[in-house]
């Protein structure tokens, strides 16, 4: 079943077109990586799904119900983690979660058990301080807890890891991974390693449309071939070798042969051996999402 369906979504801000016929869907139980560079329209899309912004045209359904601009009833299925979540600094995490539970209309006993469960899950159980003293990572973790309070069927996370250090990122990804059993997740990001780590399905947003979509392995398979990275023992040989092999040189002096087939590899090894250029490392680089992303956005 599709938990979220977006059809032909268009949105302009003044003369600038942000979304231009965007369509995609999220399967129930999956973690969906929504990839795009800064300003691509990821946050705009999420805000339209939440009824916070009005689309110029297009249709969105959440759990089969149509989303309306303003106070949309479909939000009862959704938990939302904004990119930079802000909470009432004068409350403690427990007080804030209770407020969220009350707003969603949960029973008091349910709020109590859910609050302690979630504080445990996000590692804020022993935290007695008020939110105003929290670090970014702690706020992000509280953000996930508040988003999950009413056991939503869809968790929307807007760049949850972008502003965090590696430890904070790892923690957030772990929490999202552990939440996937009870909810589907749509997760926008421009950090591709995060997508590779936890997402089932992905889509790349570019120029207001989905430029590429599929599972992570399908996307990888779409690349025609992988690259060959050669590091020469003498830095001075790089240019000569690159000219002989018809290859590129990266900033750190690695010679890169793009889309290297087996034949290309053997030919390259022959050329290197004939020219007697000492090599310190030859590596067959796996195609990663980053290269694919760069190709899609034309950089």
């Amino acid at each position: 079943m599709k938990i979220l369906e977006v059809k032909d979504l268009c949105k302009r801000f003044g003369s600038k077109t942000i979304l231009d016929g965007l369509s995609f869907s999220v399967n129930e139980g999956s973690v969906f990586g929504f990839i795009g560079r800064n300003g691509a329209g990821k946050t705009t899309t999420m805000k339209i799904i939440l009824g916070l912004l009005q689309a110029d045209s297009g249709e969105i359904t959440v759990c089969g119900e149509k989303v309306h601009y303003g106070s949309t009833p479909t939000n009862r299925y959704i938990g939302y983690l904004p990119d930079v979540p802000e909470f009432y600094g004068y409350m403690t995490a427990g007080e804030y979660l209770r407020l969220c539970g009350d707003i969603t209309g949960m029973k008091q006993s349910e709020i109590k058990t859910r609050t302690s469960e979630l504080l445990e899950l996000v590692g804020l159980a022993g935290e007695k301080h008020r939110i105003k003293g929290y670090s970014r990572g702690m706020k992000q973790r509280l953000g996930i807890a508040q988003a999950l309070i009413n056991k939503p069927r869809l968790l929307i996370c807007d760049e949850p890891t972008s502003a965090l250090d590696p430890v904070g990122r790892k923690e957030i990804l772990e929490i999202i991974r552990s939440a996937r059993g009870e909810t589907s997740v749509i997760f926008s990001t421009h950090i591709l390693s995060d997508v590779e780590r936890i997402c089932d399905d992905t889509a790349i947003l570019e120029k207001g449309k989905i430029a590429l979509s599929g599972t992570v392995s399908e996307l990888r398979a779409k690349r025609s071939g992988s690259d060959l990275h050669i590091v020469f023992a003498n830095a001075s040989d790089c240019r000569k070798a690159a000219a002989l092999l018809g290859a590129e040189i990266s900033d750190n002096g690695t010679v890169i042969i793009r889309n290297a087939s087996e034949d290309k590899l053997f030919a390259a090894l022959r050329t290197i051996s004939d020219s007697k250029l000492p090599v310190s490392k030859i590596e067959h680089a796996e195609a990663d999402l980053e290269q694919l992303f760069m190709e899609v956005i034309g950089k």
Binding site: G70, N75, P82, E86, A147, N150
Partner: peptide, 16 residues
């Protein structure tokens, strides 16, 4: 401007 209303509005708190 701070964004503190967003989590609650998306939880079903009506704007009215």
């Amino acid at each position: 401007s701070k964004g503190t209303a967003i989590p609650l509005l998306t939880k079903g708190l009506s704007r009215v």
